[in-house]
Write a protein that binds this DNA or RNA. Structure first.
Length: 255
DNA sequence: ATGCCGCGCTATGCGCGA
């Protein structure tokens, strides 16, 4: 079982990259973030030949947007986290497939909108925590994949790349992330002794390998037991007109 | 300490992303 995540920074610009990634690595499930399109604008035709079915949670205005592509049967569980009235950001999608629940997330950046932006990020992390708690309490196998916009420790960013007060490395942000770990969700890369960059800014950052580790795959205990490998598809980041994120994925042994 | 880049907009600069 192969579970993957890719922040595409506009799916209309990146549909060819996604198609190539699917062909190269044939994940069973791929979650996408930052579609930057409405649901009806998703380039389904360009991805149709790949043999994947999709579910899109788009948003007007060219912001956010998440989707799931799957080559195994699935049901959509929900398209938002509970706990905040009138949250119309398209940042969450959860499916049930192969006996597990799989969430694709685009966690708020938190650096825009001042205090309110930061507070929204932390409330969102609290709501994610509550969702995970619910699944863990029920012993439901649960995976969370996506752009967390969190550098969990100082070792997860190139020194000097982000100022100390940045929302991606703020102590409160890290506290929320650590709470998710303590709840019982395993950071896949760390569990395997790896700490790879998953994001490089446009410009020279990729050539000089100045990056961040912000795309994560978190697994409940049942799934962490099955964790075999963690990968970053740097090939996708090296392509023409790339996203600033690279796809990541994990391999799980059969249940 | 930051947006030099990239994206979408109702645009020909701005807000946002990390």
């Amino acid at each position: 079982m192969r579970l993957a995540s890719f922040n595409v920074n506009s799916i209309r610009r990146r549909a060819p990259h996604v198609a190539r990634f699917l062909a190269r690595h044939t994940p069973d499930v791929l979650v996408l973030q930052e579609l930057k399109c409405r649901t009806e604008e998703f380039p389904a035709v360009e991805l149709a030949a790949s043999g994947y079915r999709h579910h899109v949670v788009g948003q007007p205005g060219g912001r956010n947007g998440v989707a799931i592509l799957s080559r195994i049967p699935f049901d959509v569980v929900c398209e938002n986290l509970e706990g905040e009235a009138e949250d119309d950001h398209a940042r969450y999608v959860e499916i049930r497939a192969a006996g597990m629940h799989i969430a694709g997330i685009y966690l708020p950046n938190g650096n825009s909108g001042g205090e309110a932006g930061m507070a929204y990020k932390w409330r969102w992390m609290q709501r994610l925590h509550e969702r995970a708690q619910r699944h863990l309490d029920a012993f439901t196998p649960f995976a969370i994949l996506g752009d967390f916009n969190v550098c969990p420790t100082d070792a997860d960013l190139t020194p000097g790349l982000l100022p100390p007060g940045d929302a991606l490395r703020h102590p409160t942000t890290r506290g929320h992330f650590r709470a998710l770990c303590h709840l019982g969700m395993t950071d896949s890369a760390i569990a395997l002794g790896e700490r790879p960059w998953t994001y490089w800014d446009y410009g020279s950052a990729f050539e000089t390998n100045r990056g961040l580790r912000i795309d994560h795959v978190m697994l409940s205990p049942e799934l962490a037991e099955r964790l075999q490998t963690f990968h970053v598809d740097t090939e996708a980041r090296a392509e023409e007109q790339p996203s600033d994120h690279a796809p990541v994925w994990v391999e799980l042994s059969p249940s």
